[in-house]
């Protein structure tokens, strides 16, 4: 029989999988508004927030939920070459394979010929572009122009840092109809997030170890960032696994602060 700590550790592996999506009240509301926005005749939807706030997970979830009923395309890694970007869109959306180079003008022609009914929002293909801050400014400009045709709907995610926040706003202010900001979790939300995640994997014993003071400590270290929390908890359970292998006594009712701090030191959240 596998240790409960090993199972719990696996829960917090940092992967973007729609099945791992955890429903939290605030996040659910945001997700619902994003889904509603897609149904509206909007050209560009901006999803932004600090790294680790769940933007990629949102896109994955959206793709997972809508793929059965809508033409939707998810690009997790940016296609930085402009021509390659057009070729990929033409191939995926319009099923046109280009052996040679495809430029912006040719792409616009393809869109015109596709004769997509822009009134029927379900017919308009949705392109989900993750990590859009990596696209060049020129390509971003082209994406904006493509969205102006209303034949393709773009949902893009951007990292929000102090500088990037400004860029995001300046670039898209005139074209964006919907912008959604994702934030770090509060302490209460983080508790629900951790416990739900563990319970989803049937780790009930370890889920009950996360009392409010323990979660507060974790929140203090990670500031509610989901990615940092996942990393921290993965290491925390790794520590448990190590102690378990050494047959060291462990209180399974409470997580010692020492273990949390050790995990934080290992993940770099504490500079020691």
């Amino acid at each position: 029989m596998e240790s409960i700590f090993v199972n719990s550790k696996e829960v917090f592996l940092d992967t973007v999988n729609a099945k791992d999506y955890i429903q939290l009240d605030r996040v659910s509301n945001i997700y619902q508004s994003l889904k509603n926005s897609i149904k509206k005749p909007l050209k560009l939807i901006l999803l932004y927030g600090r790294p680790g706030t769940g933007k990629s997970m949102f896109l994955a979830k959206l793709y997972n939920d809508l793929s059965a009923s809508q033409a939707i395309y998810l690009y997790k890694t940016p296609i930085l070459d402009e021509k390659e970007f057009y070729k990929t869109l033409a191939r995926d959306i319009f099923n046109i394979k280009y052996s040679g180079e495809l430029n912006f003008t040719q792409m616009m022609k393809i869109i015109d010929n596709a004769n997509i009914s822009i009134e029927n929002t379900k017919e308009v293909p949705v392109v989900l572009l993750d990590e859009a801050q990596l696209y060049s400014e020129a390509l971003m400009e082209k994406i904006r122009l493509l969205s102006d045709t209303r034949a393709i709907k773009f949902v893009i995610t951007l990292h929000k840092t102090e500088e990037e926040d400004l860029i995001a706003k300046e670039h898209f202010q005139t074209r964006i109809w919907e912008s959604i900001e994702l934030e770090n979790a509060s302490s209460a939300e983080l508790k629900i997030y951790i416990q739900k995640k563990l319970m989803k994997a049937n780790c009930f014993n370890t889920a009950s170890m996360f009392t409010t003071p323990t979660v507060n400590k974790i929140h203090k270290l990670t500031r509610g960032n989901y990615r940092d929390t996942n990393k921290l908890l993965y290491t925390l359970f790794d520590i448990y696994v190590s102690y378990e292998k050494n047959n060291q006594y462990m209180d399974i009712n409470k997580i010692p602060i020492k273990y949390i701090e050790m995990a934080a030191i290992h993940t770099g959240l504490i500079d020691a």
Partner: peptide
């Protein structure tokens, strides 16, 4: 696998 003794040492240093 974590190097627990080393991690414990670092933790002790941090606490001090």
């Amino acid at each position: 696998m974590l190097n627990i003794p080393e991690l414990e040492k670092r933790w002790l240093r941090y606490k001090i």
